[in-house]
Amino acid sequence: MENFLNVLTELSGGFVTSVLLFFFTLLLSLPLGLIISFCTMSKFKPLSALSKIVVWVLRGTPLMLQVFAIFYLPGLLNLFVWPQMNTGWEWFDTTFSTRFIAALAAFAINYAAYFSEIFRGGIQSISQGQYEAGQVLGMTKSEIFFKIILLQVVKRIIPPMSNEIITLIKDTSLANTIVVCELIFEAKEFMLEGLIWPLFAAGAFYLIFVGVLTVLFNKAEKKLDYFKA
């Protein structure tokens, strides 16, 4: 029993890291994705070409490789070494370690690339007439985007976005490539002590979290059911 509680405590610690990685990735990648999608749709050719190449590279190489590159390449190329967090607050320093920050950077950039394509699809699916209606009513470009277009885009992209976001929580386990002590990493530590079941217990953590996400997305979808777009 004591053993069981011990495992659950350790796994919970790893789960907190996974969830933090998840939330911070979303926080950064959603606006970044929007910016990339605007760059891709830009009429200024060099900018749209560049952002298309960036999206191609980010979607075309394994996330694990990107995590690896962000963490090790600066040191390997003798450019700089990622500094360690040093606030003196131990929980903070270990949770937001250099490894965590490097993984977060890789995740945010990678997911921004995927999100940008979903955003682009959503934005381009809105009829030109909506923009023109806003224009002839004397609204500015940003007013048209934020007051008219955005919510319609949100409604359309909820299904593909929920797919990506659910994938993200499971992808956080790739951070253990650079030894971020997330859920799967903690579970595997127990294998060294001869315990295999914690790995399956870790699966339950993901399952519950994804369950909560699914409920939230369904709610959001219902909430936007009142109009057709």
């Binding site: 690896f68 963490f71 090790y72 040191g75 390997l76 070494v81 650079i178 030894v179």
Partner: peptide
């Protein structure tokens, strides 16, 4: 003492981690 991924030991060393 820092736990590393054994597969990445050379990268960890050469990147000065």
């Amino acid at each position: 003492l820092v736990i590393i991924d054994w597969n990445n030991k050379v990268a960890e060393l050469n990147s000065k981690q």
